Measured scan of single mutants.
Amino acid sequence: DTINITLPDGKTLTLTVTPEFTVKELAEEIARRLGLSPEDIKDTHNGKTLDPSLTLAEYGITPGSTITLEIK
C-alpha cells in the first residue's frame, strides 16, 4: 500500500507502508530518503501534527492518503 508525502517544495514522494507503521517509522523512512534527520521532520494530516507513537491506522491514514511534510 502506498501513501503520498507532500514535500515543502510541492513535490510528492510516494512511500510503501502498512497501516501498522508508526508515525515515527514513517518519519525515519522519509528522513532516510531525503537525507535528513528524523527529528527534523514534522508530519501533518488534515491540519493536525501527528504523534510519533501512534500508527497510521490510528489516524485513519489509508492507501492513497496524503501527508504533508514540514521541515523543523
Rank of each mutant, 00 (worst) to 15 (best):
I3R: 02
P19I: 04
E58T: 02
G35T: 03
I41T: 03
R32F: 07
I5T: 01
K11C: 13
L26K: 00
D43E: 15
T62W: 09
E25A: 09
T62H: 09
T68G: 06
K11G: 13
I71G: 06
T16S: 12
K72A: 13
P38G: 06
F21A: 07
G64H: 02
R33G: 04
L54H: 08
A57W: 09
P38A: 11
P19V: 05
E39K: 14
K42M: 15
N4L: 09
T12G: 06
R32D: 05
T16H: 13
L34C: 09
I30K: 00
V17Q: 00
I30P: 00
E39G: 15
L34W: 03
L56E: 00
S53M: 10
K48L: 12
K72S: 12
E70R: 04
E58R: 01
R33S: 07
P19S: 05
G60D: 05
T22P: 01
T66E: 07
I41V: 08
L15V: 14
A31T: 06
T16V: 12
L13A: 04
P19Q: 05
T44I: 13
N46V: 08
P52G: 14
K48D: 08
R32E: 07
T62K: 05
V17H: 03
N4V: 07
L34H: 02
Y59S: 14
L56K: 00
S53G: 09
K48Y: 04
K72C: 14
E58K: 02
S37T: 11
T55W: 01
P63I: 06
P52T: 13
G60H: 03
G64P: 01
L54T: 08
T12V: 11
G64C: 02
G10V: 01
D40H: 13
G60T: 01
D40Y: 15
E28S: 07
I41P: 02
I61L: 06
I30H: 00
L34S: 06
E29I: 08
I3D: 03
R33H: 13
T16A: 13
E70F: 04
A27E: 05
L36W: 11
D51E: 06
E70L: 08
L26Y: 02
V17W: 15
P63E: 07
I61C: 08
T18I: 04
V23L: 12
L56D: 00
L50Y: 10
E28N: 08
E28R: 06
I67P: 00
G60W: 02
L56H: 00
E28L: 09
P63H: 08
D9T: 09
L15C: 06
T18S: 07
T22V: 01
D43P: 15
G60V: 01
D9Q: 05
S37F: 11
D1G: 14
T62E: 11
I5A: 03
A31W: 07
S53L: 11
G64N: 04
L54K: 15
I41A: 03
G47D: 06
E29H: 09
A57T: 09
L13P: 00
S37A: 11
A27Y: 15
N4W: 10
T2A: 08
I71M: 08
I61H: 01
D9W: 12
T49V: 12
P63N: 09
D9C: 14
D40N: 10
G10I: 01
I41F: 12
T18N: 07
S53W: 06
D1C: 15
T49H: 12
G60M: 03
D40A: 12
D1M: 15
R33I: 13
G64M: 02
T12E: 06
T68N: 12
L36N: 05
I3W: 01
V23E: 00
E70W: 04
R33D: 02
G35A: 05
I3N: 04
F21Y: 14
G64F: 01
I5S: 05
S53E: 09
L15R: 00
A57G: 09
T55E: 01
T6V: 15
L36K: 09
P38T: 11
A31R: 06
S37H: 14
G47F: 15
G64E: 03
L69W: 03
K72D: 13
T12F: 10
E29T: 09
A31G: 09
A27I: 15
N46D: 09
E70H: 12
H45W: 15
T6R: 15
D40K: 10
R33Y: 12
L34E: 02
D9I: 03
T2L: 07
L7Y: 05
L15S: 01
V23T: 02
L34R: 02
I3K: 02
N4P: 01
N4S: 08
R33Q: 10
F21E: 07
K42V: 14
L7N: 01
G64L: 02
P38K: 06
L34I: 10
I3Y: 02
G64T: 02
L36F: 10
T44H: 13
L7G: 03
E25D: 14
L69M: 06
V23G: 02
S37E: 11
D1F: 15
T22I: 01
L7S: 03
L26E: 00
L56T: 01
T2I: 10
D43Y: 15
N46I: 11
I30S: 00
E29A: 13
T44E: 09
L69V: 15
H45L: 14
E39V: 15
G10L: 04
H45E: 07
I3P: 04
K11M: 11
P63D: 12
I41Y: 07
T49E: 10
D9R: 05
P19R: 05
E39L: 15
P8C: 13
F21D: 04
L26T: 00
I5P: 04
E20I: 08
G10A: 02
E25S: 06
L13C: 07
I41M: 07
G64R: 01
L34M: 09
P52Y: 13
L50A: 04
T62Y: 14
S65H: 07
P19F: 05
G64Q: 02
E39S: 14
P8A: 10
T16K: 12
S65M: 14
L69C: 11
A57D: 07
L50T: 03
S53P: 02
D43I: 15
D9S: 13
A27M: 15
L7I: 05
R33A: 11
P63A: 10
K48P: 05
D9P: 03
L26V: 04
I5C: 04
K11Q: 11
S65L: 05
T12S: 10
L26N: 00
L26H: 00
L13D: 02
I30C: 06
I30Q: 00
I71Y: 09
I41L: 13
T44L: 14
D43V: 15
S37G: 08
S37Q: 12
T44V: 13
P8F: 04
E58D: 15
E39T: 14
L34Q: 02
D9H: 10
L54Q: 07
D51R: 04
R32V: 06
T68W: 13
K24P: 00
G60I: 02
T12W: 08
E25T: 04
A27G: 10
A27S: 11
E39N: 12
A57P: 04
S37D: 11
T12I: 11
G35V: 02
T16R: 08
I5Q: 07
T2V: 10
L56S: 00
T49C: 13
T22A: 01
T16Q: 12
G60Q: 03
E25L: 06
I30E: 00
P38F: 15
K24M: 09
T49S: 11
T2E: 07
I30R: 00
L13Q: 03
K24L: 09
V23N: 00
E58H: 09
R32T: 07
I30Y: 01
T22W: 01
P38Y: 14
L36D: 02
D51H: 05
T16I: 12
L13N: 01
L13H: 06
I41E: 01
D51V: 03
D43F: 15
